[in-house]
């Protein structure tokens, strides 16, 4: 099948080369990372024969395992909360009119725009004061860790989720909801049976994005983590300061596998929905 707008001759060849270059830029580092994570040499860049020692070290280290499980816990918890809140924000902005809507709209996207470091400092200040206040009022004795990191991740993830869900909502006719209501659905049922199934792909996309961002975040997490309680990326950063060993490669490959599993899961989930 060839059409008149398809490139021909040298243009076609150049396009192919370009394609391969792009793939190389994307995947060469990943392939190298995976290969060297099995290298039996303390030096990151030299090949010293095959070994699984670095993985064993990683899983033997209770610090590393702790960081991994912290990361996963925070990712799941912050994703659930930010998906619920972000979807609600998207719905209110797309479907309702209310006082101060424009201001709310603009403020909602602030976390996407402001630099991570700024956000991190803000969060640090906030938790310094906030936890003190809570402590003074209720004597909770909260320490920085799971809650401070989760709340920070929720804070920026709400914005990302609502952007994604809103794009989906905007592409959906309000006619459909009105048709549901005309067909005796209550507002809730119209959402449950018509709006929600329409925006599920947006919600899934938002959730995936939120989870990735949460698993990824270093800057903000580092500021609000507090002593003795870190996530995997922050732990990796700490390792680098002590000297770079292929242990880092092993940790990174583990993170990569976890992220890819998530993506595959979400694709499978969507397939099942469509055929079922």
């Amino acid at each position: 099948m060839s059409t008149s707008v398809e490139p021909r001759g040298w243009a076609k060849a150049a396009l192919h080369v370009n394609g391969w270059f792009v793939y190389m830029f994307f995947y060469a580092p990943i392939v190298l990372l995976v290969i060297y994570s099995f290298s039996n040499s303390r030096n990151v860049g030299t090949w010293g024969g095959f070994t699984l020692d670095w993985y064993r070290d990683f899983f033997d280290s209770s610090n590393a395992r702790g960081a991994l499980s912290n990361s996963v816990k925070i990712a799941i918890f912050s994703t659930i909360i930010s998906v619920v809140l972000g979807t609600m924000a998207a719905l209110s902005l797309e479907r309702f009119t209310f006082r101060g809507k424009k201001v709310f709209d603009a403020l909602l996207y602030l976390p996407i725009i402001i630099p991570d470091v700024t956000m991190a400092v803000m969060m640090l200040l906030f938790f310094g004061e906030f936890f003190d206040v809570l402590d003074a009022l209720f004597g909770l004795g909260l320490r920085k860790g799971f809650w401070s990191i989760s709340i920070s991740h929720i804070a920026f993830n709400i914005s990302f989720v609502s952007v994604v869900v809103r794009a989906r909502l905007a592409g959906m006719d309000t006619d459909l909801e009105e048709a549901a209501i005309d067909l005796y659905a209550s507002r809730w049922k119209a959402f449950r049976y018509v709006t929600f199934p329409q925006i599920v792909p947006g919600i899934a996309g938002g959730a995936l994005l939120a989870m990735t961002l949460s698993l990824d975040d270093v800057v903000i997490t580092q500021f609000v983590a507090g002593p003795g309680w870190t996530t995997l990326p922050v732990y990796v950063f700490g390792l680098i300061r002590k000297g770079v060993t292929p242990l880092i490669n092993a940790v990174s490959v583990t993170m990569l596998v976890v992220s890819m599993l998530l993506v595959v899961l979400s694709i499978v989930a969507q397939r099942v929905r469509r055929s079922g």
């Binding site: 006619d175 459909l176 009105e178 048709a179 209501i181 005309d182 067909l183 005796y184 209550s186």
Partner: peptide, 17 residues
């Protein structure tokens, strides 16, 4: 609308996709 004995055929049908 649910309390009225009327139903509507919408301009672009508004079928649930």
């Amino acid at each position: 609308p649910d309390k009225r004995p009327v139903n509507t055929v919408f301009q672009n049908y508004a079928l649930f996709p």
